[in-house]
């Protein structure tokens, strides 16, 4: 098991190097905007641009630039400096991380709390009206783009532009430590919008997984033992049906921690997603590379955690 984890971690590092290399190639060879020009202000002279180029190291050979970048990245966790503000990308990410974590964790709790029970009930009352209604609703929510849903919700409920002014609207995010109550209320709408699509997917996944599990032989055994149906469903059915969902959950959370770009943009939350959005619009390479690497890192870590968690959840994995 330990050897397995070590191998997975090493592969994760290899993957991260590959991602960083790909980022480097993509953005240096096919630049969307010249960063030196971007920083030089209005109608700069070629001399100023050349100076900025040399300051940023952009005049060195590509391979040298790459080597410096990788060395700084993996030996010093140095993600470079923002072309715009000059702040270190690492500090920018740490500054933005709390908002993204708040958004992700709250939404994850919400979508699990809704999606899993709805999926279980739908599976047990298959083809009932309740099942049809919840599966129909989930289809709508899965199909609705989250930025569209976000705008609708803002239009309906936001304190500034809403028809019914109940929740703080876009741009109202406050850090948890500065004002917990404001933090909570400002995130309510983003949580709901972000969780809606995921809850819908998880309800469908849970339903399908539980329906399959409930036809297993060991469920028949559990009933033959004379267990109550409640125990058969929860202890024998759900316990087995929920394991594949664990994998998807970890990957979803990993991806979201790398920034929910659409939601953070619609609700103007200063998180990682917003950071990468601004980075992309300003051709701010170090920031883009930093945020993309962060997503890759979270996904790699989530994958490794899933593998370790599986060993605890499924004894068959533990011994193989």
């Amino acid at each position: 098991m330990t050897r397995y984890i070590i191998r997975r971690v090493l592969w994760g590092v290899v993957l991260l190097v590959a991602v960083s290399a790909l980022m480097f190639v993509l953005f240096r060879i096919l630049p969307t905007a010249d960063p030196a020009r971007l920083r030089a202000g209005h109608s700069p002279s070629p001399k100023v641009i050349a100076e900025i180029r040399s300051d940023l190291g952009l005049n060195k050979p590509l391979l040298t630039q790459f080597w410096v970048y990788e060395k700084n990245l993996f030996l010093h966790f140095d993600l470079g400096y923002s072309y715009e503000s000059g702040a270190s990308v690492k500090s920018l990410i740490f500054e933005r991380l709390p908002a993204t974590i708040s958004l992700t964790v709250g939404a994850a709790v919400l979508w699990l709390a809704i999606g899993i029970p709805v999926g279980i009930i739908s599976a047990l009352r298959r083809h009932s009206r309740l099942d049809r209604a919840s599966m129909g609703a989930s289809l709508v929510l899965v199909s609705a783009p989250e930025y569209w849903l976000g705008l609708i919700v803002l239009y309906l409920f936001a304190a500034d532009i809403g028809q019914v002014k109940v929740f703080p609207g876009a741009g109202s995010y406050v850090g948890l430590t500065s004002d917990p109550w404001k933090w909570f209320t400002s995130l309510l709408l983003p949580w709901i919008v972000l969780a809606a699509g995921f809850a819908a997917i998880y309800a469908r996944l849970m339903r399908a997984s539980l329906i399959e599990t409930m036809s297993e032989d060991y469920i028949r055994t559990a009933r033959a033992k004379g267990l109550t149906e409640r125990r058969v469903v929860l202890r024998h059915g759900v316990r087995a049906a929920i394991t594949p969902i664990l994998t998807i959950f970890a990957l979803d959370v990993g991806t979201l921690l790398g920034g929910a770009i659409l939601i953070e943009t619609v609700f103007d939350i200063p998180g990682i997603g917003r950071l990468s959005y601004d980075g992309i619009t300003h051709g701010n390479f170090p920031v883009i590379q930093g945020t993309v690497l962060l997503v890759a890192l979270f996904i790699v870590v989530a994958n490794i955690l899933v593998d370790i968690a599986y060993a605890f959840v499924d004894p068959r994995v533990r011994y193989s």
């Binding site: 297993e216 032989d217 060991y218 028949r220 055994t221 559990a222 009933r223 033959a224 033992k225 004379g226 267990l227 024998h236 316990r239 087995a240 394991t243 959840v313 499924d314 004894p315 068959r316």
Partner: peptide, 19 residues
């Protein structure tokens, strides 16, 4: 069920809960 009348099945591997 499982008290006065008990039952065993064909495939013992799939009949036992794997977890």
């Amino acid at each position: 069920r499982g008290n006065d009348i008990a039952m065993i099945f064909q495939d013992p591997l799939s009949s036992l809960h794997p977890l």
